[in-house]
């Protein structure tokens, strides 16, 4: 078991490092500079990758939350927590890169563009989820409560997206032409390849971080148990 997981770790690591350099090369050197927007457009490769991972991480939280409700399991509880923590980081990066993108292309730091706004709300839900996990009590209790909140949060995200998109189109229809090309309308093939590769790289990064985080958390748990055992032995 530990041998297999060791191999997976190595595999992830040795895929991650070269593909990261390759991604950087693709993004900054190989792919053409966009004519209208210029160099700032490059941020878009990381922005989309991080946004994808931010939502993926939340789906993973939801998945482990459901499993945890069906049968409480320490490993699932840890996995959900780590996924949420990584999710917060990627959501933050998405928001920041989105703001820089917005400043350079629309000359505004913030716009209530549905995807960006949903990401902001997602960030708040993540943070709330982590607050629930910080409650006092036995881990089973917290696992159950946080799982319940994770599920409710998961249900909420698509509704938020729908509501915000509706709100925007009903009031002031989308005026930013560039806003639409994020989904890849008339994108050059080199750009598309670069985009897909950077999404791949960031997903591998997520998987790598996830495994490391879970490992560290398990170690922490082992240390805590050993400590408790030592204390109870000293006391008796």
């Amino acid at each position: 078991m530990s041998k297999v997981s060791g191999i997976i770790d190595k595999l992830l690591f040795f895929t991650l490092v070269p593909s990261f350099f390759l991604a950087l090369w693709l993004v900054f050197i190989w792919s053409p500079v966009e004519r209208v927007m210029g160099a700032p457009q490059k941020i878009f490769y990381f922005h989309v990758g991080c946004a994808w991972v931010a939502f993926l991480a939340f789906i993973i939280v939801g998945y482990y939350s459901v499993r945890n409700l069906i049968k409480p399991n320490m490993n699932h509880h840890i996995a959900a927590g780590i996924s949420a923590e990584i999710g917060v980081i990627f959501t933050t990066v998405t928001l920041l890169s989105g703001m820089i993108w917005g400043k350079s292309s629309w000359n505004t730091w913030w716009t209530w563009e549905p995807r960006l706004a949903t990401t902001l709300i997602l960030w708040f839900i993540y943070v709330a989820y982590l607050f629930v996990r910080k409650m006092e009590g036995s881990w089973e209790n917290i696992a159950r409560l946080s799982a319940v909140f994770g599920i409710i949060g998961c249900i909420n995200v698509p509704i938020v997206f729908m509501a915000i998109r509706w709100w925007n189109t009903k009031l002031h229809p989308v005026v930013f032409g560039e806003g639409k090309d994020q989904s890849g309308g008339g994108i050059a093939p080199e750009m598309l390849l670069t985009l897909l590769f950077s999404i791949f790289t960031i997903t591998v990064l997520y998987a790598f971080l996830m495994r490391k985080g879970i490992e560290i958390e398990k170690m922490r748990d082992t240390v805590r148990r050993a400590k408790n055992r030592a204390i109870s032995r000293l006391a008796s």
Partner: peptide, 23 residues
Amino acid sequence: NAKNSEMLLPVLLLPLLSPLMIA
């Protein structure tokens, strides 16, 4: 269930309410 439930509630509640409030 939490000791600081008065503070926790708005933090949990408001993000989830956002679609309802927009509507």
